[in-house]
Design a protein around this nucleic acid. Structure first.
Lengths: 356, 356
DNA sequence: TTTAGGAAAGAGACCGGTCTCTTGTAGCAG
DNA sequence: CTGCTACAAGAGACCGGTCTCTTTCCTAAA
């Protein structure tokens, strides 16, 4: 085992150059892997670098080259399995093209999102992938795009921002799931979704500023309407932004006299909390209530009964948005692409006929 | 809404200085928030900066200051809820001290871990938090420490590396969980853990190079031995490194004629896969087999029956390791601390008497 | 009135790489 | 033997900040 000498100050190209008795430029050529150097010199510089335990300062490097080799990713909530799987898709695609990933959490708060974007821009990331938490306040995203740094959107589209975007067919998915419940005989179905509500009830799509949420509500409402449900809007429940909020919402929903006979949840974290509430009341699925959720989270297959889900291609979502971005980073000029991936329903055992 | 002019090249202090008719040094003082500047000049520089949409280049800044304000985190598998929760603990602690976090995944492979460390060192992170994937090959970690950059270890200790470390009482936790099973009457208990096995069976602790895994096996084996179990080592199953591997292992375990009457799983991802295998065979918990797992993952409470778990203070684990690191980053000199957090068993319904 | 002191602004070196431009030298054709 | 080219190595500017050192100017004490 080689003893590495203690060194408070990391070694630089200049140090290596001195040790190898060459100019800084020549040492840099060897260490940076560019330009032309003779084999003899290359060998001695390499040896000197190894002896000094030289490690390139990526900061200095990317300051001159203008490229950092980093993709910045801003997601809503890294703890949500949906996002962590998407992030793996991004990371894998990035790694395959030797990019690295910096992750920042927005917590679905627009201010945190702006701060994260500012930070990443400051770190001079080569490009950004963002799940925009809302569509009204997108000045910061426009700025990224305008400053020439590629931006790609994940899971949520912004009509006003024409950049690479990968989403799923949210509206169709919601329609299909709602139809499953309607076909089973349900007419009193609740849709629970995670969006800031400020205590307001749902009135119409005008108050929803996240594309995926909009699309899903729209799909749910129109499927209900097609089935002759009266004023389906009143069955949309906003505000499931965290475990506590969701729990309160679920309890309220289930204790209500005209409580729904079926629930559609907008993600697996929400569904889990609803499931807890259902269990605690001693209600049975699907006898007392039916349940479908977006996202085939791994636990949905092991409950009793297992939960019918809308399977989103989450990994592919992350992987393909990263690929679009990387293509652009590598200089390929192309019109912005809007990819819409298809979802599928996985039928399990959580849907049955309604029980009055 | 202010129109921000299109600018391919981001603005610099020099640009702002020129626009405000002051020297670069003065503009830098205002924009960097250091030194002394008159209010008049400050106002005009600030105005010029706003007009030009100036954003500091953090790269350049951290190159001169030597501080990046970033903590590098290398975890085994960000998709494992254990790690994503720990990472949130780290992020929260970091944010509270205005540090940012760069995340890298090692996939529990030592080579990837080394590459990640090299990358982060290259990016000149201020400090690192690592979950070392093994204790034999720690040259790269020694180097970090030696180069004067603070390092802290999460969830896994390294006896040879005297740095800030936060773990849980793995040995005691394993003993307590095993005793629960033993007290229920079990004598044929399997312990399934995620560690590279290369097809080898478990022989003794000498072949295990991850402290938490060692501690737990040690606890499990000694609790079994105390209860008079003959050669408990043969009930330790290594190699549950991924869903496929775990599934194979579980199937093998359950189809074996002298199959165990109880299983202890080393994390919730493994437990989930085992549960799937149990379900598929039509076996019942706890009638046909009992199950306990490390980590109170959120789904463990909603299965039927809910799963008895070892509750680890995962968030606190991340939060406190970050705090230790940050304390050091802020210049506090202190001897390395080795924190051991306590776990608790949450009794649910997955343990019953053995069924032959 | 002289001068010390301090505040405010400027000049320019520096961080550690990259990269262009220049210089020196060897090889080869004429 | 000269001249041209090609290649290898060196010199030094540059990226965008920070920071030290210097200069300028104004105020107040002796």
């Amino acid at each position: 085992m080689t003893k590495v000498p203690y060194s408070a100050r990391p070694k630089t190209v200049a140090d290596v150059a001195r040790a190898a008795n060459v100019s800084k430029a020549t040492a840099a050529r060897v260490l940076g892997g560019y330009g032309v150097v003779s084999d003899t010199i290359r060998a001695s510089v390499t040896a000197a670098a190894k002896a000094l335990d030289y490690r390139p300062n990526e900061l200095a490097r990317s300051m001159t080259t203008g490229r950092s080799g980093i993709i910045g990713v801003v997601v809503g909530d890294i703890e949500n399995p949906f996002f962590s799987l998407a992030v793996r898709g991004i990371s894998d695609a990035a790694k395959a093209s030797s990019f690295n990933v910096i992750l920042a959490n927005s917590g679905e708060k627009i201010e945190a999102e702006k701060a994260a974007v500012r930070l990443l821009i400051g770190k001079r990331v080569d490009g950004l992938i963002v799940t925009p938490s809302e569509s009204r306040d997108i000045g910061h995203l426009r700025d990224i795009h305008r400053s020439g740094r590629p931006l790609a959107l994940l899971d949520r589209a912004l009509p006003d921002l024409d950049v690479d975007t990968v989403t799923v067919d949210d509206r169709e998915a919601a329609i299909r799931a709602t139809r499953v419940l309607i076909d089973a005989g349900h007419r009193n179905i609740a849709y629970v979704t995670a969006v800031e509500a400020n205590g307001h009830e749902y009135v119409d799509l005008g108050q929803i500023y996240t594309s995926s949420v909009r699309e899903r509500i729209d799909g749910f409402v129109s499927a209900c309407r097609d089935a002759g449900v009266d004023r389906p809007e009143r069955h949309v429940r906003l505000g499931a932004t965290g475990p506590r909020e969701t729990r309160r919402l679920a309890d309220e929903l289930l204790s209500h006299p005209g409580r729904p006979t079926a629930i559609l949840a907008s993600d697996s974290v929400i569904a889990l909390e609803i499931l807890r509430a259902i269990r605690q009341r001693g209600m049975g699925i699907p006898n007392d209530i039916s349940l479908i959720t977006f996202h085939d989270a791994d636990w949905t297959g092991v409950t009793t009964p297992p939960i019918t889900v809308i399977d989103q291609p989450v990994y592919a979502l992350g992987h393909s948005v990263a690929e679009l971005l990387i293509r652009r980073l590598n200089g390929q000029i192309q019109p912005p692409e809007r990819l819409v991936l298809r979802t599928a329903i996985i039928t399990r055992g959580s849907v049955g006929p309604p029980h009055p």
